[in-house]
Design a protein around this nucleic acid. Structure first.
Lengths: 330, 330
DNA sequence: CTATTAATACTCAATTTGAGCATTAATAGA
DNA sequence: TCTATTAATGCTCAAATTGAGTATTAATAG
């Protein structure tokens, strides 16, 4: 999951429209077009000393990108991840990694090195998980489309216990009745939507041939295999990590204004923050130092430019950027 | 990494003294006895739908234990994890899991089901990582043995830059000069000790035949392969998780006094806590409810017994047990 | 010259945290 | 029975952190 932030949007490196080769004319045929895919590839143990070095080599082979920060995300090994298993394909186990790429480095990856299969592009993360972006307030689709769908699904439960459990899970993840949104529960929300048959992948994986045509925007774009689940795992993890490690700076250019920094955090967190308090935390935390230069194309008063104080990584356990109370006011 | 807490000690399920079959009479021979091992086994994709279900089945096959809480830890795939690779053995990739077992359930696993290879026992976690237990104050070995060893190693760096970097890493992880201990940096500390040649595994992996006889207690018990690193990963992860998820209750019996709960947290965190503040946090967090029963074998005033309020898991995102300031006073 | 967009400085109340004192209720041993 | 000991439990208080502003300053676009 290769991430960057440009134009105040979180972006994912995506290798477009994949064809799954495999089944020939059987019922699973409807699912052969997997949609966008996360970049993935085989690991060759004879070539690479570690999983991470294999990943880095593979990415720089496929794209122009040089990954900076990389961390292991999760290992996915459920049966049926790759529908070709049904046609006797091998059981794939994928070790997912999260990689952060700085804004300046992020060359559009389409100029891949002489590799026909690689047509990678940067896509807005929220195209795949549209309900996760609360920066302009609660997304309308939540109340209009998602809540009714999930409620109906909860009521379909066999037993009263199951119905109750479903309602509780929904409420915890989406906060409909408590009116509270926890931006970190990305995976929990995706899993509910998958179970409830709201996202295309769940129908596809059940071998259901019908594509969901209504509310396409609300359902988000489908991805190959379980890649959308992996993308959700990554977003949840990153939203958590931002708060306790200074990973946000891996996504910034070398110099930035505090508002630019705030916008990047907001883009990933999917919420707006209180500006003054955000500054207080960042500056008090000793995470940045002023460069003395000013950015004057701000459209307002020029903002001082800052850089990340890399030394804090050594001085102490650098704390990351707390989300200072999601802004409820101006 | 199967964990429980008994008698105020964190314990690990360990399958004793493993013989690594493989090399015959070459220089690597000295390393053939791997020491204690974490329970591990193969994953059979034809038998199991998910990695986790494979793990559960395998553990209940090998031991009497029924795992409760299970979470994926990390996937280990570095070259050389298994020294038999050098003799043409396969490259192993291990998906590590952390499992928590409640005190009452934790039948000593030695009565394994008709399985000759399994002679599992519960071992004190700190036998393997003795420098991590600060409950009786800073371990003496830190100042007496570890600090000198690490300093010497730092000074052996080739360049000034490398020496500086080493000193800074040491200081961040162990807090020698800042006099601050971050209990979560377990893996960072283990890695430094490994790099510095302090733990037996690092000499073993370099093919060095000499066993470290001096300061055996300070070095902790060695484990098979990279299992001690895995154990360190698990301890760091668990110490973090306790604070933001109510996982500690997975390790408790159904009913417990608040002091018992505190002792369990302290056992894992490796620090002492301020009793009154601990109670305040637990009770205010709504994590427990009184049963009305009292435990009178406390040696003092009888303590009320509590149970975990499982409902909090559904009501809201239950917060876990913050470590209320490591106690500096009485 | 003015409206607009931000940056930046400062305030203030509510909460949370760290540390401790005091009181109560049992048990073990003299 | 009396006393020392071990804990549980109740309560206080100051310091630090957080949430939510107000006010002021400095640019640009039209």
């Amino acid at each position: 999951v290769v991430v960057s932030v440009t134009n105040d949007q979180p972006r994912l490196l995506v290798v477009g429209e994949n064809e799954i080769s495999g089944g020939r004319g059987d019922s699973a045929n409807a699912s052969l077009t997997g949609g966008d895919a996360l970049p993935y590839g085989p690991f060759d143990p004879t070539q690479h000393r570690t999983l991470e070095s294999g990943l880095r080599a593979w990415v720089s082979e496929q794209t122009e990108l040089d990954l900076g920060y990389v961390e292991q995300l999760y290992t996915f090994g459920d049966r049926g991840r790759d529908p070709r298993e049904r046609q006797g394909g091998p059981r794939l186990v994928s070790v997912g990694y999260l990689a952060l790429v700085s804004e300046t480095v992020s060359v559009p990856a389409s100029n891949a090195k002489s590799n026909a299969t690689s047509n990678a592009t940067w896509q807005n993360w929220y195209h795949f998980l549209p309900w996760e972006d609360w920066r302009e307030g609660a997304p309308l689709i939540l109340e209009r489309v998602i809540e009714p769908h999930l409620s109906a699904w909860a009521e379909e439960g066999e037993s009263e216990f199951e119905r109750d459990t479903r309602h509780e899970r929904i409420d915890l993840a989406f906060g409909f009745t408590t009116n509270s949104w926890n931006e970190k529960l990305v995976l929990e929300r995706y899993e509910l939507l998958y179970e409830a048959g709201f996202v295309q992948e769940s129908l596809r994986d059940r071998g259901c041939p019908i594509a969901l045509e209504s509310d396409r925007a609300a359902r988000g774009r489908a991805m190959l295999f379980d890649h959308r689940r992996i993308a959700a795992t990554a977003l949840g993890r990153l939203r958590g990590k931002i708060e306790y490690r200074p990973v946000i700076f891996e996504l910034m250019a070398g110099e930035f204004t505090l508002l630019q920094l705030q916008r990047a955090v907001e883009a990933l967190a999917g919420t707006r923050l209180h500006k003054q308090n955000f500054r207080r935390l960042v500056e008090k935390g000793g995470l940045v130092e002023p460069t003395g230069r000013f950015e004057s194309q701000t459209g307002g008063r020029p903002a001082e430019q800052f850089r990340f104080r890399r030394d804090v990584l050594l001085e102490r356990l650098a704390p990351g950027v707390k989300l200072p109370g999601r802004r409820h006011t101006t």
